Amino acid sequence: MRIAIAGAGDLSRYFYEEFPRHGHHTIALTRTPKGFLSALSIEQRLTDYSVHDLTEKLSDCDAVISTIAASGPDHVAVHLALLEACKRTPRCKRMIPSEWTGNVERHPEQEPRYMHETREPIRAALRAQKNAVQWTIFLNGWFSEYVLPAGRRYFGDLEDGGWPVDFAKRVFTLYGDGRAPVTLTSARDTARAVAKLMEREDWEEFTHLAGETVTWVDLLGIVQRRSGGEWEVVGRSYEDAVRQVEEAEKDGKIGKKVNAQLQLLGYSDFNRVEVEKAKRQREAYFPDLHFRGVEEILDEAGSRGGVI
């Protein structure tokens, strides 16, 4: 299939590497040329993300997948333009919006504010257009590559407690009693699953992917055991996390607000994907794919260099 990927950030790199391996002709939609895409021999189509331009750029594509994580109204505008372009093209009738998140199907009330404000208008538009464009939302919890230090993953570090593992300082932030669950799914395995789903016609509204579900205490034990040396464990109460959100709101910086709100998820069930639904969908849609657990990711990192 001829598939367009919107965006050229950290997450997209796993998609650009994996899609050609599954036989898909892959096209990048990007505002500016990217060297890593040239190195991968990926066709780059420069776009301003207007409906008119996207309609032209997507005219010969079978589907578009977004890995864009813009802020505020920009995120909504780009995705609505992608949807409208799909509706106007005769061929590109499949779209996967940029979600890659926790269990918004079961726990929509726990969704972070920044995410709800930027994703819900897109979900509403997708539902309202009925069957003109086929779509699904991927729910995968956290990407398990975050258990690796910088240099072994494409993702950048998350500061201000947005992710509990700080490899540089060797500090682990424990959310409350650490018993809340978190599903960790590899971004690379997610890209492989999306590539396989393109071969199917029977998409569901939500697609659940689950590598492994652990608690934060479990994750702390894995990190301590596998990384060697001492780690400082910093306990953070829910009240502390709420205060950080309030302070970030006053500060006004997008990055601080996002990381503060991500931290709140560590006290809830939002990070846990529906394991039974993920199992059913895996058997139906991805029977020949293996979704790696945390230990497997770490084993792979230990056996070879570079990005995992």
Rank of each mutant, 00 (worst) to 15 (best):
R113S: 14
R123A: 05
Y146P: 01
E117F: 01
R152Y: 04
P108A: 08
Y154A: 10
P149S: 07
E109Y: 00
W135F: 12
Y154D: 12
Q134R: 15
R127W: 06
R106D: 14
V147Y: 00
R113K: 14
R127S: 07
L158F: 15
R123S: 04
D160T: 07
P108G: 08
R119Q: 09
E109W: 07
R127Q: 12
W142S: 03
T136R: 09
A124W: 01
E117N: 11
N131F: 03
A132F: 15
G102Q: 00
Y114Q: 04
M95I: 05
S144A: 11
Q134D: 13
E99K: 07
I137V: 14
R153E: 15
L158A: 12
I137T: 09
W135N: 09
G151E: 07
F138C: 12
F143A: 08
Y114V: 04
W135S: 14
A125S: 08
Q110C: 01
R123V: 03
W135C: 06
P108Q: 09
L148H: 04
D160F: 14
S98G: 11
D157I: 12
L139T: 14
D157W: 10
R106T: 10
R123H: 10
R119A: 06
Y146R: 02
P97R: 05
Q134E: 13
N131Q: 15
K130D: 07
M115P: 00
F138L: 13
K130G: 07
K130A: 06
L148F: 10
I96R: 10
T118Q: 07
R94E: 01
H116W: 03
R127P: 08
R113H: 14
W100N: 07
Y154K: 05
F155G: 12
Q134A: 11
S98H: 02
P112Y: 00
E117P: 04
R94Q: 04
P149G: 13
P149T: 08
S144Q: 07
R94I: 05
Y146L: 08
I137R: 01
V104H: 03
N140K: 01
H116V: 05
N140D: 13
W100Q: 09
E109P: 04
T118E: 11
S98R: 12
W135I: 09
G151I: 11
Q110S: 10
S144I: 14
L148S: 04
M95H: 06
R119S: 03
P97T: 02
M95S: 00
R94L: 02
E120P: 02
R153Q: 08
V147F: 10
T136W: 06
E99G: 05
Q134S: 08
A124R: 02
N131R: 13
E99C: 03
